[in-house]
Design a protein around this nucleic acid. Structure first.
Lengths: 192, 192
DNA sequence: CACAATTTTCAATTACTCCTGAAAATTGAC
DNA sequence: GTCAATTTTCAGGAGTAATTGAAAATTGTG
């Protein structure tokens, strides 16, 4: 973390007076946000590097610029491919695989939203539906006032409705089709 | 984690055939989502307990039901207060402090969005603005083609514009005023 | 097919974050 | 003010996630 690759060692953090330093700073800033997006720091850094450089790179190039191990690079690249925010390319006469980042920021955001909904919200929704189904029926008020049971059900339903709405919206605007999210944002921006 | 309070030991996970078991299951499900919201598991569990029970509780009650230490309870409660999704109450003739959860799910969501924007997006935006300002001017093309510098700037700007839009929207719809987010969601749901 | 280049896997290590429990600080009643 | 009840803090321990590095698997070429 405090270790800076030799070629940039003469630049303090935040100093971006050369192009490389600018890119370095961008990678670092993006890496710090990793937690917020629910991805590991290295994943974020690899993506940032590919995004800001605007070209494709192979594993060795990425390893060297980020000073990470081969294993880490391989895992992070694989994960980014799974998330759908970088893609493989090839170069004639070169056996190595190259990777490039999606240059459309909205599309990146869409992929992240989609993936996180799938991993986090959908399982929770499923669990909550089950919990509601297993909730004791109001007439079996053995020791509990009926209102207590009904209130709990009502609160469960409140949460379910909320998550359901979020889920529906995400399908609509972050789904595989078109520029949904950007459109939504623009519409909202124009509202009364 | 695998330890279940004695009073519920006869219920397998997912079995919610008593009211307590239902609440227990809800707390566990909500706790699992903690990571997704960017809060610790205990924080999520405390909130879930207060939300689903619908009443106020003191620290000891929370400690016992969640089987956590006093320190952990104190920290988690404090954090939830900071996030603004639970509040303090008092009972006449009782020196203990009681806590209760906001029962409006949309309002909870709004608080979380607001807090995370403040902690994560705003600092990133600030960092990116600085990075762009320190970016070498296009005419100082010492060794770099001018286009390279301009392209990097363009990508930086793309990211800045995106984050700026997100930031503006969050202020508008998750800001301190009114039911913004719910309204936005309903509007979006009705779109063509 | 054999071989070298390249990628993937994974056990061991390292770095973090979270939690505990007891000590210190605070609070309110008398 | 004194004292007991209550809350907060924090150093150390426990548990989790990320990273390495080298061995295994895969891939493509001649």
């Amino acid at each position: 973390m405090t270790e800076i690759p030799a070629k940039n060692a003469d630049h303090a953090e935040g100093d971006a007076s050369s192009l490389d330093a600018t890119q370095e700073a961008f990678v670092a800033a993006w890496g710090q946000m990793a937690g917020a997006w629910g991805i590991s720091r290295t994943m974020a850094e690899v993506h940032a590097l590919l995004y800001i450089s605007g070209r494709s790179m192979n594993t060795d190039e990425i390893m060297e610029r980020l000073q990470i191990s081969r294993g880490n690079a391989s895992m992070s690249i694989r994960a980014l491919l799974d998330w759908g925010i970088i893609s493989k390319t090839h170069r004639r006469g070169d056996r190595k695989e190259y990777f490039e980042a999606d240059q459309d920021v909205w599309s990146v955001f869409r992929s992240i939203v989609r993936e996180r909904m799938k991993r986090e919200v959908e399982p929770l929704l499923a669990a909550l539906f089950e919990i509601r189904d297993d909730c004791p029926p109001p007439d079996s008020a053995k020791g509990h006032a009926q209102t207590e049971i009904l209130d709990t059900k009502r609160r469960l339903d409140g949460m379910l409705e909320f998550l359901g709405t979020v889920e529906r919206l995400s399908h609509r605007f972050a789904g595989p089709s078109g520029k949904g999210l950007e459109t939504a944002a623009k519409l909202l921006g124009k509202l009364p």
